[in-house]
Every structure is written in structure tokens, then in C-alpha cells.
Design a protein around this nucleic acid. Sequence first.
DNA 1: TTGTAGGCGTTATCAA
DNA 2: TTGATAACGCCTACAA
Lengths: 347, 347
Amino acid sequence: MTRPPAPTIHHLAQHLGVHKSTVSRAMDPARRHLISSELLQRVEAAARELGYRPNRAAAALSTGRSKTIGVLLPDITNPVFPPILRGIEDALDAEGYFALLANTARPGGGSGAAQAAVERMLAQRVEGFLIATAVRDDAWLEGLRKAGARIVLVNRTDGRGELPAVISDDMLGMRLAVDHLVELGHRRIAHLAGPAGLSTGMARRIGFEQALRPHGLEPAAVVECSAYAVDAGQAAMGELLQSRKRGKRPFTAVVAANDLIALGALQTLRERGIAVPDEVSVIGHNDMPLLDQVSPPLSSVRIQHYEMGFRAARLLLDALRATPGSDQATVVLRPTLVVRASTAAPG
Amino acid sequence: MTRPPAPTIHHLAQHLGVHKSTVSRAMDPARRHLISSELLQRVEAAARELGYRPNRAAAALSTGRSKTIGVLLPDITNPVFPPILRGIEDALDAEGYFALLANTARPGGGSGAAQAAVERMLAQRVEGFLIATAVRDDAWLEGLRKAGARIVLVNRTDGRGELPAVISDDMLGMRLAVDHLVELGHRRIAHLAGPAGLSTGMARRIGFEQALRPHGLEPAAVVECSAYAVDAGQAAMGELLQSRKRGKRPFTAVVAANDLIALGALQTLRERGIAVPDEVSVIGHNDMPLLDQVSPPLSSVRIQHYEMGFRAARLLLDALRATPGSDQATVVLRPTLVVRASTAAPG
DNA sequence: TTGTAGGCGTTATCAA
DNA sequence: TTGATAACGCCTACAA
């Protein structure tokens, strides 16, 4: 039982007794109008009958357009990325594009995996890249741009802000968190920062400090986590408690750079018998799924992940139509505050 | 600033004063040995220098192999799929393949979206499909197979078991859950079933009933949820409590068909002031992330999602090498029990 | 070990 | 409105 060879445009043309260019035109919505409606119908009927599908690989070769976009993200297993990817896909799908996906956070680390993925994608002749990997070091990214690649950053920016990006307003996000706590009466607020090497880690840390200023406050303490992960948050919270014991600037609230870190903090606090929110308030960032199911339900700053992916993909698609260089835009999305039970007035 | 046209094999050949087939051979690891090592070095150097990348779109046209696999899943936003996808990608990546992804659970419902995605993927000349969409109705799937498409099912089977698949042993999974509860002393166990239209929903329900039998037990009650979702679980748990009130076969434990349903159940029980696990034990299924962070930490049956994706992709890749028809295999992975705090001896 | 010729399935450009 | 011809960039015989 061998599979029948897929019919080509040639077969169809022969079958109909017309030339293949005619079939080609009939199959293209943009050039259909050049065909007599009677012939058009016949072509469509025959195509259905023979199960003809234009070979995109051939079209790609001929036109130079693969209808394909490279998507780089650290790890789809991290809950912030699925909605982003979903948004990307929905936008691409609407234009008949596909995403070529690569998870670039390999055990090895570094940007090597990302570069390797880019190489392969380039070979596939993707028309552009959507990049959500968060490492801030990327000379290679700059090189990619210089080589003529179309790029839109998602959920991050490059160092110099030369690349178009769709991000969340991290300054605003931290202000929402801090204002909320200050309003509740907190004056001594600590920060569990994300890795300084990641663009959001840095932005949120700065955002935290700037958000305190208008209130005449300074950070009670800042500890940088080694990663956006529960155990890193656990460890960092431990450190924070050390400094607290040493009596310098005891804090009544903690702003975490992300939800996983916040969950780790919650765990450490629970272990030490420190009540949340009675003794210490905790607020996360991202508002990932299921935060309402943990104990206590975690307050957080909600980011529009789906929207971020969708807009980024649209931005890229628009840029592909336009001439190179006309794609300079950065979209900043507004986060919102989600108050649950992990934040309350200081005891 | 227009981007420089990518160099082709022709340019490289010219630059080196050799014929393009020579370059072609030099770039292919499988045929490199036919080239004098001196020339090989020159080619490689020149390739690096000019930034030459073989155009896969052209190679695909020429060889008929796109190095591309279509992956269909309902919704990447559902936490069981990211690890599956990651596994798929890792396996594909190792062979230089890419995944073309489609989320087929659209608001509309039905298998229309899946079929549309398949159409487009066929046009892209994917070499095969990995399908994780769970609807059990699929005449169209059968049609796809008959048309010669290479398919491996992931996390589901087809009705007749004609397609190779990688699944988890749902019978065993339910047995693990039921045995655990029986061992704790439960005799009246209820089931919150998944939608009967989904392959896992059906399999787990049957598994549940069969697991009770050796213990001389019958289901205390079974309620089918409208979806694998928290609110569906909430509603179903409400129904279960109704039947309990009516006094017929009151239960002391609930086996949920999936974790989201279990979380919904937990919520309803909390609202009604029924203590877990003191009055009712609850166990989920899948062991999705963060279950250890909810309250009480949810016992569950862990499924090897990553492995499932990885194995499925390998199976497909192997089948692609072999001749059609030689790919009949079904891999069954073994789940494990994860005991946390939501299950205990009946009060 | 290297070169030559032809074809993969489309689209694009002319010409009719 | 349709047909003819020539690419697109690579691979695969086969010949040298």
C-alpha cells in the first residue's frame, strides 16, 4: 500500500486541458479575477476532485516567501509562555503563517542554543523572528538585525532599544504593587528581584525603587534571586529573613519579581511560622494560572500575555509588508493589579 | 538599507571556481567523504566567509522532504501540553526537524479547526503528524491516514486502535488512585469523570470502575464533567454532594479524572465547609505543576508527559525512515502515584 | 574525485 | 483572458 503521489499543478492543468499558469492564477485569491468565472469553477471542482493542494515548498522557492516565522522562547514549560505563544499563533494563523518554534533554554545555558536555532530557521528561510528569550546579552541579536533579519521582541527589550518590541509596562506594574502596599499602610517593603541578567529582572527592580520614591520610602531590602523559580524564591526569602533578624530595616511586605519567586517566599515563610498576610504581605508578578488556588491566594500584577504575543506577531507581519526600516515601534501594554488574600494591612 | 540577498550555492561555487554539485556534496555530511579534504576545507571556509546557508525550501522541493512535522493540540494553554510539546521538540530538534504547531481548540469547537490546520500543513508538505487533540470522533483522521499521511497519536488513541500512539496507562493510573484510597480504608469512592467524548475521559472512567472490582466495590457515584476545567469540577462536585444528601451511597473519597477538576472539587468542598481530607479525600490526575502549592496539597497520578511527547516524535521519525506500514506500534507509559495531603484515612 | 544535465512545483514576465 | 518560457536553489543520476 504505497501512498499515491500528491497531484501537482501540472496534473490538474492536463486534466483540464489548460495551461498550468491558468491553474496557478485560479488558485491565488489575489489573481483569481483574471480568470473567466466559468473556468474558475471548473478548476475549483477539479482541484477538489483530485485533492490538489498547491505545494508551498515550491511556492516558497519561487517567491522567496516561506510563510513561516521563527519563534524563540526559553521554555514553553514556563507558564508565562503558553498564552504568549497562543497569541502569536492566532495572529499568524489569520494570515496563513506558521510558527517554527524553538525552546532555547537548554541545560547548557548561554545563548548557544538560541543561535543554533536561529541558524536552522534561517536555513528554512523564515521571514522573520519573534524573540522572547530574556537574556540581555546579545551582540548576536544585534548581528542578526544587521544581517537584515526582521525581528520583534516579546516580553523583553534589547539593551539599546533598537529593536521593535512588545512589552508590559514594568514600571507601572511595580507601581501598582507598591502603591497597593503603601495604601494598606506598609512603609517597609522588601524586593525579591529577578536575575539582573534578564531584561524583566532589571526593569522590575528599577521599577520597584522608583515606585517607592514618591512615597518618601526606600527599599527595606533587596535580594536578587538566581532564577525565576520557586526554589530560588525560597532561598532568597531565607536571606531576606536573615537580614531582618540582624535588625536592619525589618520589613512588613515583600514584592516579588514574579509569581514563582513569590510562591517560594510563601513556602519559606510558612516553614518559619510567619503568617501571611498577618505578619508579612506578599505580592507576585505575572498572575499565572492557579494563583487563586494556593494558600493564601496570591495577590499579583496581571500581565497581558496573550495580547503581547498577538500584538508582536501582528507587528512583525505588518513590518514584512512594509519596506525595511519602517518597522520601528514599541508597544507597551498596561498591567493590572489583582488583589487576593496574600496582602493586607500590616499587623 | 536593503538587506543583501542571501548567497546561493551558485555564488559559492563561482567564488571557489568549482561546480555547484561539488559544493552541494561538501555541505552534506552524508556525502562529504566524496570530496578531497583540501577542497572540503576551502568550501567550508568560503561558506563561513560568505555566510552561505543551504536553502531548505529548495532542498525540500528537490527531495520532497520538508524536515517538518505537523503538531496538533487542543490548546497549549492547558498545562498538560507544554511538557509534551517540549518532548516533541527535543526529539525533532535532534534530527534537524521542526514542528509546525496548531492549537485546534477554537471557540467554535468541533474538529473543523483541526482539519483546516491539517490542510495547511499538508500544503506545507509536512512529513507527518503528531496529534494530541482528544476528540474521539474522527472519521477525518481515518481519512487522513488512508490518504497516506504518517500519523502518531499522543496522549490518546483512535477508536479502532489502528493508529500508532503513545499513551499513558489509564487503567493503571486509576488503579493506583483507587488502591491508594482503599488502602487508606475508603470503601465508598466516587468519580468525577472527564467528558465522555474525549479518549482519556472514557478510558479513565472505565479504569475507575475496573479498579474497584477486585476490592469487591462499586462506584459510590459517578458524575461526568462538561470539560477538563476548574469550574466544571466545581459544578460536578456540587452535583455529587446533592446525591450524597439524598442519602444514597454517601462517599468518603473522590477520584477526579484530572487535576483541574479536582481543584474545582476542592473549591466546592471548601465552600460547603467540608474538610479535606478529614471528611472527604480527593485525588487528581496528571500531577500538573504547582499542585504542591495549593491547599491542601493535592494527591495525584503523575503522567510522563515529556516522555510521551519525546517518544511519540521518535516513533514518527523512525516510521519516516522505514517503509509505509511498518509503523504499527503503541507505546504505553506507566504513571506513578504522588501522595500529598488531600488523601487520608476516612474520618 | 569532480562536472554536466535535468527536474522538483511554483510564480512571474511576456506575448498572444 | 490565456499560454509559453524562464527562473527560484538545490539534489541526483550519470558521465568524465
